[in-house]
């Protein structure tokens, strides 16, 4: 009868000192490892977030702590005609820009999802507007919108469609449209690359199955592509909405909120009132109006992320 020899398992030898034991405890090690990140986020993100909410209820100015004034700032702002324009501008800017970016970005994603020569290079260079510093491309748009030397005006005059000049940034509505166009230009690649990632997760066998069932191109899109893409589309759109509502640099560089305060968004008006004008409390209250958008966006994205 063969005997089975049992040996004790080789004991794993790990450092036994206090430091070694702490490093082996996954609770202790975990806490130690997240501490640096959490410390920075607590001091420079969570604390200012709270401080900002507090400041929006005070009449603080530069150099003065200020005292609690309740809803004073908010009541004042709601009666302020410039601020009312800001609310309208933000709604218009976000709605128009996000819808156009979504539609155009989706079209671009569908185009580059095909097989064609030069696919890789096209996918690479189409991201450029999103890669380069926005403030620098905003300068180019400022130059493109020059009242005299605008290249658009020059081209239109050259082909005979226009005889005078266009003052792109001098007229409120034209200025808004010009800013929205610049924002769309910058945001198309973000949507395109995000949705392209989604398109590539759609398994070809699904299309084959749909084709066998007699689906045409529209039906394939509507019953195969769209359901797979929807959650990602929601996440990308929510994210872009937050960024668009919180936009600052395009507006500040191209129009400074002008002409006559007609193109301000929350960010630029808050900067003008708090940093340039010194009314910290009022500026913080203006910024605080971005919060409902943020909360709404977080709820929507959580809803969809949970379904995933």
């Amino acid at each position: 009868m063969p005997s089975v020899q049992v040996t004790t398992a080789a004991r794993v030898v790990r450092p036994a000192g206090l430091v070694g034991r702490v490093l082996e405890n996954h609770h202790a090690l975990g806490v130690m490892m997240v501490t640096p990140a959490l410390l920075i986020l607590a001091i420079f993100l969570a604390y200012p977030f709270g401080l900002g909410v507090w400041l929006s209820f005070t009449n603080a100015t530069i150099g003065q702590a200020g005292r609690f004034v309740g809803l004073g700032n908010f009541r004042y702002l709601l009666g302020d005609s410039v601020f009312r324009v800001v609310v309208l501008n933000t709604t218009l800017y976000a709605a128009a820009a996000v819808v156009c970016k979504l539609v155009l970005g989706f079209l671009l994603a569908l185009l580059v999802n095909r097989e064609f020569r030069g696919k890789r290079i096209v996918r690479a260079i189409m991201l450029l507007p999103w890669i380069v510093p926005t403030s620098l491309s905003a300068l180019v748009f400022y130059w493109i919108y020059d009242p005299t030397f605008s290249i658009i005006t020059w081209a239109l005059r050259r082909i005979g469609l226009l005889h005078g000049f266009i003052n792109y940034l001098g007229d409120p509505n034209l200025a808004r449209a010009s800013l929205i166009a610049a924002n769309i230009w910058r945001g198309i690649p973000f949507f395109a690359i995000g949705l392209l990632a989604g398109l590539q997760t759609v398994s070809p066998t699904l299309y084959e199955a749909a084709a066998i069932d007699g689906a045409g191109p529209w039906q394939k899109f509507w019953f195969v592509t769209w359901p797979v893409l929807l959650p990602l589309t929601v996440v990308v759109t929510v994210f872009s909405t937050i960024m668009t509502v919180g936009d600052f640099q395009l507006i500040w560089i191209i129009t400074h909120g002008g002409p006559a305060n007609a193109t301000h968004l929350f960010g630029t008006l808050a900067y003008q009132r708090a940093i340039q004008g010194g009314f910290i409390g009022e500026g913080a209250a203006i910024s605080a109006f971005v919060l409902p958008v943020l909360v709404g966006a977080v709820m929507v994205s959580f809803h969809y992320l949970r379904r995933e």
Partner: peptide
Amino acid sequence: LVPPVILFIPLAR
């Protein structure tokens, strides 16, 4: 998700 626009005024302080 917190945009810098909400933070820059308190951060300045």
